[in-house]
Amino acid sequence: MVKSKSGRTGDLIIAFICFLLILACLLPMLNILARSLSSSEALIRNEVLLWPKGWNLTAYKLVLSDSKYTWSLAWTAILTVICTFVSMTMTIMCAYPLTYSKLKGRRFFNTLILFTMYFNAGTIPHYLLYKDLGLLNHPLVLIIPNSLSVFNMIIMRSFFYGIPESLRESAEIDGAGPVRILFSIYLPLSKPVLATLSLFYAVGRWNGFSDALMFMNDRKYHPIQLLLYNILKSVTSIEVATQEGFASAPGLSDTLQAATVMFATVPILLVYPWLQKYFISGATLGAVRE
């Protein structure tokens, strides 16, 4: 289609706005990266904008030599892997049976599950329940209570619905049971949604901190985000900073802060491009829920 001149100008204006948006998303990250790699003197002199000045890796070395950090990173990674596995298993076990239209009690199960999306007991009842169950300050409190998201379950279910029923029926005629059909037909065909939901669960766990803040007093089991939060808040008071174990050379806390932010961010930025092609289709499925 031939475009008029004004149409092309319009296109360029829109492209320019999108370009500004890209800058708005990337420049902050670039600034933090530059700060984390700069010398503290350069930071104090306000010389660092988007490119590191007085290039050095002191902050990163400090972080990596602090066992509190390395442990927290490792613990969060372990936790993320376990949580993603548990959550995906639960989500599949919940979504798959509900796709059988012949399943007796399906309506009841659906209502039971959907109701929890709209009415929530609130933080304190959950807290007291964990206390009664002995989950408080137990590492499992970071795994079990949020292991199944109704929203993700619905995405999974919609995807399963999209698989032609004739496939299942012919497998049933061949004598395959529901479990066999799940493993040999449904799961192999559901790779995009499995990737998407795994990403959602993994990111949710990696980024989560409020459950640890509320239900976990043992610092050993604090995920990286909570550690990061404590560090961010400690910059204002030297006292807490030294408590957290950092020498308080002026300006160093700033590079250190930047370096810790990078440590908590980089794993996400690493997996993001790989999974990107999957999650758009997954997120769209969630949007078109029935």
Partner: peptide
């Protein structure tokens, strides 16, 4: 543009507050 614009969604509020503080 889409790839870049989706990215911030995957950052936690702690990270964003860390970026914002700086």
């Amino acid at each position: 543009t889409q790839s870049v614009a989706y990215m911030p969604h995957f950052l936690s509020w702690i990270i964003i507050s860390g970026i914002a503080l700086q």
